[in-house]
């Protein structure tokens, strides 16, 4: 049996990688993938705690998260395609038209 803290540690690691990916990568696609990574790290944490407490609630929550993530991917990728068509680039730093 793998100890719980390793799962949690992996989850934290994945989440940190995701955060750094969002903050540091310029490509919108990579930012998108980092967000997915964070969602999945959260899923992993939920499943781990569900196992720890022998409770089903958190596992059900994971299904919701997966569903919403799938919907989000559909919308997000569509946006990404539209951005790429207009600008021939997915560089997120170039998208500053909302500058105040």
């Amino acid at each position: 049996m793998v100890p719980t803290f390793l799962y949690i540690g992996l989850s934290a690691l994945l989440f940190t990688i995701g955060v750094l990916g969002v903050l540091l990568r310029r490509s919108a696609l990579m930012v998108f993938m980092s967000i997915e990574l964070m969602l999945n790290s959260a899923n992993l944490a939920l499943v781990t705690f569900a196992n720890e407490w022998q409770s089903i609630d958190a596992q059900i929550m994971v299904f919701f998260v997966i569903t919403i993530a799938a919907a989000e991917v559909a919308v997000g990728l569509a946006l990404l395609v539209m951005i790429f068509r207009r600008r021939q680039s997915t560089n997120i730093d170039a998208m500053t038209t909302l500058k105040g």
């Binding site: 969002v22 930012v31 997120i92 730093d93 998208m95 500053t96 038209t97 909302l98 500058k99 105040g100």
Partner: peptide, 12 residues
Amino acid sequence: AQGQNGNVRTYA
């Protein structure tokens, strides 16, 4: 307004 620079990653 300098904070409102339109850069998504800053917001993040």
